[in-house]
Amino acid sequence: MLTRLANPARFMRISAVALPWCAWASCAVIAVGLYLALIAAPPDYQQGEAVRIMYVHVPAAWMALNIYLFVAVASAVALVWRHPLAEIAARSAAPIGAAFTFVCLASGSLWGRPMWGTWWVWDARLTSVLVLFFLYLGYIALVNGFDDPGRGGRVGSILALVGVVNLPIIKFSVDWWNTLHQPASVLRFGKPTIALSMLVPLLVMALGFMLLFAALLLVRMRTELNERKIRALRLNSAASVRPKRRSEHGVPARPAVLR
């Protein structure tokens, strides 16, 4: 499966078929999920209607973590087997993951305002998600920080693996720091075993977000492959046009890329 997809041309063919299916399926599932979450699900007996933020917040948090794991696994595959598409998958997934992390933080902040009475608390979980967001930003900046895109991808793979080793350490130390520093005043909802009427919309939304991720990932990977193709074509034409012109007129011509 992995080696079959390693051929970019074959990947373009298969993804062209898969993309509309993923896109429409994610639209449909998210629409159903939003209906279930915003209209069908009961309000919480304690939190009232504000609990509906959960149906966006929690799946976004799951996606934030899972996409980071996806980036790390794809990076490992790229480093170990030199799989040509794994590197593209990793660098295409990272901005989507960062967006989900941002959605998680923003919706959490909006949820925290009515529930905790504040936009932000230095709670262990919030802080580790914030650090995860910075890890994403660092990865994206590093991957795009080189003139040679291949170099950025390879170096980014190493960073993703360093980050995935660090993630549990950061999580652990933030938990430790939090128990030391924080006054035990923040409202934590004990440990509610979630009711089925709330669990179903949550899982539907999570499935919808996963399909959305798949669709966006395919779009980004296809764009990246097309960009590479254009770059290669330009370099080729620049290399083939320039010497000929120079010999005809005796003056250096403009490189073909600029025309």
């Binding site: 650090v131 910075f134 890890l135 590093l142 080189f146 003139d147 170096v155 933030v174 430790w176």
Partner: peptide, 27 residues
């Protein structure tokens, strides 16, 4: 080592390193 030869190495370096410095800072 990761940022060697990148454009704007200094800024990139701090962006990469500061999240990883959280655990030593905490302890």
């Amino acid at each position: 080592a990761l940022t060697l030869g990148a454009r704007r190495q200094g800024v990139l370096l701090s962006l990469l390193v500061l999240p990883l410095y959280v655990p030593p800072l905490i302890f």
